[in-house]
Each structure stands twice: as C-alpha cells, then as structure tokens.
Design a protein around this nucleic acid. Structure first.
Length: 114
RNA sequence: GAAGUAAACCGGGUGAUCGCUGUCUCGGCUUCAGGUCGGGAGAGAGGAAAGUCCGGGCUCCACAGAGCAGGAUACUCCGUAACGCGGAGUGGGGGUGACCUCAAGGAAAGUGCAACAGAAAAGAAACGGCCCACCCGGUGGAAGUGCAAACUUUUAGCGGCGGCAAUGGUGAAAAGGUGAGGUAAGAGCUCACCAGUACCAUCGGUGACGGUGGUAGCUUGGCAAACCCUAUCCGGAGCAAGAUCAAAUAGGAAAGUGUUUGAGGGUGGCUCGCCCGAAACUUUCGGGUUGAUUGCUUGAGCCUGUCGGCAACGGCAGGCCUAGAUUGAUGAUCACCUCUUCCUUGCUGGAUUCGUCCAUCAGGGGAGAACAAAACCCGGCUUAUGGUUUGCUUCGGUC
C-alpha cells in the first residue's frame, strides 16, 4: 500500500465504533470548521470516520466535505500517531476553506508521531 | 435591431501527479471453499440522479375472489405494459399576432350555499309602484224623474276585491334583447329581426362536433375545486420486498385459551370466502441477535438505418454492453484552453462644458462558471437551474 492511500481497512464503518471514540476520546474544536475526536485503539493502524450531517447542506455539500477531510487525512497521516481511531465532524464553513489551511489546522490538533 | 413566442440541443474540455469503488486478469502467501498482499487492463452519476406526486415491472401475502366502505379519473379518437402521461383534434376563454390556456359528465334525482348591497338570491312571492276594464262601496260634477226626501243614467277621481311583473340608485348574477302591435295597466300576449335551448331531417367526420334547413315551447338562473348522482378504474404491502448461509438465545418462568362441537394464524379497513392448522397458541417477565451472500443490474435497454403513421409511436434489419456504493465510491492540486464580468494600458472613430465620456479591437491582471449527486429497475409529471441554436409573430429602420 502506498503512503498516500486510504482503503477500507482504515475506515470506521459501524455506529458503535463512532460512539466509542466520541464518548471516550479527546475532543478538539477547530473554530467553526470542524470538531476532532481521537482515541488509541491498540491496533497496528489508524482509522478515520467522518460525520457530515444534513445541517451543513445538501448531498453535494456533504459529499464534498467528506472528500476534503479524507484528502487531508491521506496527506498528513504519516506524521501522526499510529494506532489511533479518529472521528471528524464537519462544520458548516469547512467547504469554503482552502485545503492548505485546512490541512494545517487539522494536523496541529492531532498528536504527532513519536 | 427590439420585444415576444415555440421547439431542439449541450450541461465545460485536454494533460500531469496522488487517491476512491466495482469488473476482468497476472503473480506471491495461505487454503476445503475462499481470503489477503502487490501489479496490469478497462469502466465509473443526472437532465433533472431531486420532490416521492402518479403508473407499471418484480417479490411476498391464497390461485387475487364477492359485497360494503374508501380512493382516483371525467370532451373525442389514437398511442402505450400502464397511467391521473403523451400525440392529434373538438368546444369555451385570452392575445394585434406567433401562440397560450381550461378539474371541458350531470343543476327538470335529491339536499344545500350565495358576504355586502338590494324590494327580492329561487317553483318568483311579499313590499314599494302601476292599473281599476269587469264586480262592490264612498265622494264631486252633469242630465232625467219627483213638491221634497230620494232614485236612475252618465262622467271624473278614490278605495276594496282583484289584475300586472315592464319598473324599484343594487349586485358577480334579477326569469332573453330591440322595435311594432296590443291593453284598464301590462306581459313572447302576438309579430319581425337577433341571441339562446331542445328536437327532427340532411351533408361532412371513426368520433367529440361542425355546416345547412325546419319545428317547438317562446326560455326552465349560478355554484357540483358543496354534499351528491352517473360512468370507468383500483386487493394489500414493499428490495429494510423476498431467498440462502452462519452465529446466538435456546425450547426459560407465570397466567389465560384450546384439542375435531376445531383455539389460533395467514392479511392494512369491515363482512364473507379461501388457505394453513388432527396441537399448540396468546400475553407478561427475563435473555440474545440484529452479520455475510443473494436479490443487483440485459433492460417495456441504447445507437444507426429503413418502412408505416400528420404525430405520439410501432414494425423490421444491423450494431453495442453502458455505475452498482452500503458512514455510502467520480475528488484534490497544478498548467493550458473556452465563456462571463471587473480593473488597467494602448490604437482607431465619435461626442465634449477640454476635466473627460462612449464604442470597437489588441495586450496584462483578478474574480467567477449554475441547479444539484444513483441506492431494485423502468415510463411520466412537477419543481430547481447555466447557456447555445433554429423556426415563427409583432413593431421599428435601411435598400
């Protein structure tokens, strides 16, 4: 697997997994753009889940938000702590933000690889 | 050129890098199937994918059956798997016109409704008003008879009985309109013309209907997007349908009903019917699941040609395979091109209050590129939205 890929093994898929991270994990808000939760999972890889509710817009906007977060995660994932479950809740203003700025803001809020 | 009207088409393109989801394929590891890792090839949202408003396919409920209830539709013919959809027409209404538009059956089956205004809103009666010819009663005048009281006749006007529905500032709507005759006054009461209704004949049309001629009573209001009546159609639920596999709880406790005289279930309105059911079922308490595969994309499919048809559409021949996700796959970055708009520089032309302003062309820079994303699949409708082209109409200008 190449260093920028993002396959199914690296995703959170089920509702209980989401709830575990959001209840037990650390929470960081990045202004009005998004909210980040993270929790060590004891596995050999990190996993990402994205929530984009109907509040932020219609289906097109929600898809766009998910893709942008996924894109950022692909770029920054080699820098951050492995063995971590991460949940990102997209906010309303995230879509209008340039990706370089978004990438910087998210990577600052996550623990760096030791 | 401007304004309008109808229809058709497109839904940014190319390249590079990284990445996502299926399919096919090659190789490694493991293996009962298969899984996993890496590489390659090729595919990957829409005209509305949307709203979920109609209609169907498909699946299950019995083979989809009867009655009631309920719902939908409502000019004609055609198209279609079907429709509440489409096409072509007919008839109203609107527009100078191209064209647009119409929930377009029944109001002498019944029940109902009509604010305000108005005398009155529905078997035209009451009220105001008009008339008083006929019948009756007063009053005034005239004439006659009589000494007189009075009586008779006639006339004018009033009232009663009665006649009339033309008139009554309204109103969306007031019982055909105009003219003439007629009458006490009037009235389709009668007549002429016009409008409308019904029926008959005839011609054209598959038909809705239209043309022409005649007859009738002369005319019977509006609303059925009020109930209703008539005709036609509709069984219910939906891919979380349904099927298979695996795992888990396991045949737990209590109460009730019942074993052929049949409990209970299948079923989303009710009744019947039908099917399952020769034994279990229901309720409460307690416990446990809520995974994987399939359904799942070859279909009323798309394209091209040809034939039939005004058209919707259909027949035939050839070719093509074109998304199948499930926290839900199409994106990000960069470059160039296309379009729109703003700023700026310059040339040319025009105007000028000499400050500048307007138009065309060329260069540079910035910003923007709509509406909106499949979720079983089709046919429609509705709504949202950026453009391009073409036909036609009206008005204006030039030759």
């Amino acid at each position: 697997m190449s260093e920028f890929s993002f396959g199914k093994r690296e995703r959170l898929a089920k509702r209980p997994q989401f709830e575990l991270v959001m209840n037990r994990g650390h929470k960081r808000r990045i202004e009005t753009y998004c909210t980040v939760f993270f929790l060590p999972n004891g596995l050999d890889r990190k996993r990402l889940g994205i929530i984009a509710s109907r509040k932020i817009g219609n289906a097109v906007v929600r898809n766009r938000a998910k893709r942008r977060i996924r894109e950022v995660f692909r770029h920054i994932k080699k820098h951050i702590e492995p063995a971590m479950d991460i949940v990102i809740i997209s906010g309303r203003d995230l879509v209008s933000l340039p990706s370089s700025v978004l990438e910087k803001k998210i990577s600052q809020s996550l623990p760096v690889k030791r």
